[in-house]
Design a protein around this nucleic acid. Structure first.
Length: 895
RNA sequence: GGGCGAAUAGCUCAGCUGGUUCAGAGCGCCUGCCUUACACGCAGGAUGUCGGGGGUUCGAAUCCCUCUUCGCCCACCA
């Protein structure tokens, strides 16, 4: 059977079939036989219209590594998949599609028809991204796939809305909100992203009206600095800081809005910065959130003239000069400036760099707009989420993101959740002609208060208002399902730091508020996929890499390995879209290396081999014991690394085990035995099988396909590698730790011999007499035992041992009769010396610690010699610190 | 304006608690090899002011200060 394995690993011919077999075997479903608490990860649901990009590839690979690791360790695991209806994003996509297909806009066909169009699009293509995740090997439990607009899920959303409303945490209010004129909807604070822009600060002159009729005083002018001159027509006041003496005399007087000569009062407000611009601020309550607040402070019921349409054109209202009506805001700005200048109202224009908010979906500059929206009162929800983090119930990896989370939550503002879109969860609020509002989970037949006919709110909910319920709504909440009980809360959330506010923090808030528990304990934030210029990969920039192309050309394993190995904990991964070979070649080569080592080992396992446990370890050669100890060590290392989310360390450890230790050393050492040139073939085969099992097991979470493909050919392999539930492989009783040390010496010796051959130009195949000189009898004995290993690895024969000498090394008689000597001091002595010194330092430390403890109450003047001192001093410092802390605490307590 | 991160070989990056894993890996480069698992390979080799400057320490890529250069996040200076 193994003879049929080709010398080059061909992922494309194997992966799909292997995945299919896993799926059919139901291997991804949680297996309660695992016992203990289940390990649960919920997928960050991709947008339903998304196509797989590298960001998904990265994020989902990390999740799959963790899930596979825990599954193989024997835990019951659930990786919950699904998609997000993604309100604005999806509506935009389908609108565009609709326009190219039919030339119509959504308004041409109306709400119901358009929403039906979106649904059919989603039904057609919505599964695409999930299918694409299969190509990279994601082991989600697909039988549980959820969509945020599923019936049950929608019920959860309505329940949440109603509950928050009942609790007084939901309200409808008129505010100046962020409005995207292109998408035609309101946005939350988080959805309106700041971006620095070069703008201008226009200094505009307002005439101050004369006091009293015909007082004959001189004309007074004031200058107001603004970045948005087109909004002056909506001014209701000019304000300055109450302590600003420059303008004190003007308070109570009136200014005239230029061009329309409308009188507005001059007032004071503490929010005005005296040193910005001229210290005078025009108040435009309908077009700026701060101005809205200021107006509220100035009047009980302020006038809020609105001069902008939903499309961000100047409106057809009396305040707007006729020439500007219907003009787009940016054109209007230019034209206003021209008019102001012509009328002598423009004092100066200075360049001004400032942050402007943009729609996170279409990058359009956001327009502050006065409108009625639904808001969630966030402060009460934030408190438990904040507490959880502060007392350590919620951890971030890397830790620094915790501070970001904490600050956002502690300064949280109310959440505008209504969107003027058609695609999404329609707001479960109904209005009647009398103005009553009924909020209910099911459509009311009539107004609860007056009994009149009701009409549902036209708006839909923010997409994130459904995704914040993901960890429990996917499990059937609000029903108290078996799944909910078993799989909530989960353990790890793997996502990008860019959605800490949008999603992570809100999920924690939701989890606490609706279930009293946080949805996960650890948030593992992955980096971003960038190109060599460190630019974020994106379709629009044209610097993207299609993961499916990588899967096709290099294999899913290569993709996954590259992702995992290429990123230390939480750091970005850099890939070159123009040179896939450089990015993914090394990982593909590694898969191929494993394939060939595996192929080689398997080809020698055709004859029955004994189980290692049944072997007499007395028959083991040094190299056997060495490789077994390496098995043990790599298992420990990989396990520890995965537990600490140091996936790149895990990848590196298994890489070097497979390539350097197994392929380059052990397999070479073992060949004479396999070829019958030496005795002990049975032992060698048994250990090779064990070594291969270890390698396949430890590598499987990262490279599931190639490992599974080889696993199937292993004798005594029972079922799929994925569900072996056998993480630790090498039998600890076989491990000889000493062997590591001794084999290292052999390696050093071999290197020395190679060096002799290379340096003195000994042709391959020419016998060189090499004499080993060892420092001690002990070492000589060791070398005797290791002679065969040396011969094999160095391909040198014969080898003789010389008498013990002072210097350690290998001497050789070259074909021309001359003798050379290569000292091995560096390789051998240092190694021993290191251990000796380490032990010695530890011993001295112990002595000093005991001694210092006695001295601790007296004074800290002792100066121990050299390398031992530091630890001593460190301890001294630690004691001082501790005592200082105690003293401080006592002082604080007043005891 | 506030905060965070990064700077290590030609390139992309590791380097955890200060010390023997301490100057590393992969790629690239140089030399020699198609040696019966693998040329997606094998055996060797060269390459560094650890961004600059100061400090702490017996000892610093690692800790502190500072400067420079990039990047990110937050923020009601219109």
């Amino acid at each position: 059977m193994t003879a049929t394995l080709p010398p080059q690993y061909d992922p494309s011919s194997l992966e799909a079939e292997i995945y299919q077999r896993w799926k059919e075997a139901g291997a991804f479903a949680p297996d309660p036989a695992g016992g203990g608490a289940p390990y649960v990860i919920v997928i960050p649901p991709p947008n339903v219209t998304d196509r797989l990009h590298m960001g998904h590839g990265f994020n989902n690979t990390l999740q799959d590594v963790l899930i596979r690791f825990e599954r193989m360790r024997g835990r019951e695991t659930l990786w919950m998949p699904g998609t997000d209806h993604a309100g604005i994003a999806t509506q935009n996509v389908v609108e565009r599609l609709f326009a190219t297909e039919t030339g119509q806009t959504r308004h041409d066909v109306g709400r119901d028809a358009f929403v039906e169009r979106v649904w059919s699009y989603v039904r057609e293509t919505g599964g695409t991204i999930l299918a694409q995740l299969e190509a990279i090997g994601a082991s989600c439990d697909w039988s549980r796939t959820r969509f945020t607009l599923d019936d049950g899920y929608s019920a959860a959303v309505r329940r949440v809305f109603v509950q928050l409303h009942q609790e007084g945490l939901m309200y409808r209010g008129q505010r100046v909100i962020h409005w995207c004129p292109r998408c035609g909807t309101a946005l939350s604070d988080e959805e309106a992203e700041f971006e620095d822009e070069e703008g201008a600060l226009y200094h505009v002159r307002y005439r101050v009206r004369e006091q009293g009729a015909g007082s004959g005083e001189q004309e007074t002018w004031i200058t107001v600095a603004t970045t948005r001159p087109e909004t002056i027509f909506a001014d209701v006041a000019v304000v300055f800081h109450p302590d600003d003496e420059r303008y004190a005399a003007l308070e109570g007087r009136e200014a005239e809005i230029p061009l329309i000569n409308l009188a507005i009062p001059i007032k004071t407000h503490p929010l005005v910065q005296r040193d910005f611009g001229t210290g005078l601020l025009k108040v435009t309550p309908a077009h700026d959130p701060n101005d809205f607040d200021i107006a509220n402070a100035l009047w009980k019921t302020p006038e809020r003239p609105d001069i902008m349409t939903a499309e961000a054109r100047l409106a057809d209202v009396p305040r707007v000069p006729a020439a500007l009506r219907g003009v787009d805001r940016f054109a209007a700005r230019k034209q206003t400036v021209v008019l102001l200048e012509a009328a002598g109202h423009l004092v100066k224009t200075e360049p001004h760099r400032h942050a402007v908010r943009h729609c996170y979906r279409c990058q359009t500059v956001v327009e502050p707009r006065l409108s009625d929206q639904w808001f969630v009162r966030m402060a009460p929800l934030a408190k438990p989420a904040l507490d959880a983090y502060r007392r350590g119930a919620l951890a971030f990896v890397p830790e620094r993101w915790g501070a970001v989370y904490e600050r956002w939550l502690s300064e949280i503002r109310d959440w505008n959740i209504s969107r003027q879109l058609w695609w999404g969860h329609r707001i479960p609020a109904w209005y009647c002609a009398d103005g009553h509002i009924t909020v209910a989970e099911t459509t009311p037949t009539a107004c609860a208060t007056c009994g009149g006919a009701v009409r549902q709110d036209d708006d839909v909910l923010d997409t994130w208002f459904s995704s914040w319920l993901w960890p429990f709504a996917t499990l059937g909440w609000p029903e108290q399902t078996v799944d909910l009980k078993r799989y909530y809360p989960g353990h790890t959330l793997v996502t990008g730091p860019d959605i800490i506010f949008f999603w992570v923090a809100r999920m924690v808030m939701g989890g606490y508020h609706f279930l009293g528990k946080p949805p996960f304990r650890t948030v593992f934030l992955n980096g971003i996929v960038r190109d060599p210029k460190h630019q974020k990969m994106s379709k629009s920039k044209g610097n993207g890499i299609d993961p499916l192309v990588v899967v096709r050309d290099f294999g899913a394993d290569a993709l996954r390995y590259t992702m995992v190995a290429g990123s230390a904990i939480g750091t970005d991964v850099i890939l070159d879209p123009h040179d896939l070979e450089t990015s993914f070649g090394p990982a593909r080569n590694f898969a191929n290396k494993l394939w060939n080592v595996g192929r080689f080992i398997l080809s020698h396992l055709d004859v029955p081999t004994p189980a290692p446990a049944t072997l007499d370890s007395c028959q083991f050669e040094l190299a056997d014991r060495w490789i077994l100890s390496r098995c043990q060590r790599v298992t420990t290392d990989v396990t520890a690394a995965l537990e600490k989310f140091r996936l790149n360390d895990a990848a590196a450890a298994i890489y070097h085990f497979v390539w350097d230790q197994v392929a380059d050393w052990y397999v070479e050492q073992v060949k004479p035995r396999l070829y019958g040139e030496a005795r002990g073939g049975d032992v060698a085969r048994a250990i090779l099988a064990e070594v291969l099992r270890t390698a396949l097991t430890l590598l499987h979470p990262i490279m599931p396909f190639v490992t599974e493909a080889l696993w199937e050919h292993l004798p005594r392999a029972q079922g799929s590698l994925l569900v072996t539930r056998r993480w630790t492989v090498a039998d600890a009783s076989l491990v000889d730790v000493e062997a590591e040390d001794r084999f290292a010496r052999v390696q050093a010796l071999v290197v020395a011999i190679r060096q002799i051959r290379a340096e003195y130009g000994v042709a391959p195949g020419t016998a060189v007499r090499v004499q080993v000189q060892a420092a001690t009898i002990e070492a000589t004995e060791a070398f005797q035992a290791e002679q065969r290993t040396v011969e094999r690895l160095a391909k040198v024969a014969p080898l003789t041992l010389g008498p013990p000498t002072k210097e350690v090394g290998a001497s050789a008689v070259l074909p021309d009769g001359s003798a050379v000597f290569v000292p091995l001091g560096d390789a051998i002595d240092l190694h021993r010396e290191r251990r000796r010194l380490t032990a010695e330092v530890a011993r001295l430390d112990g002595l000093l610690a005991a001694q210092a403890a006695k001295l601790a109450n007296i004074q800290f003047t002792s100066r121990a010699p050299a390398h031992v001192v530091t630890r001593e001093r460190a301890k001294e410092q630690a004691w001082r610190d501790q005592r200082a802390t105690v003293a401080e605490k006592r002082a604080a307590l007043g005891t």
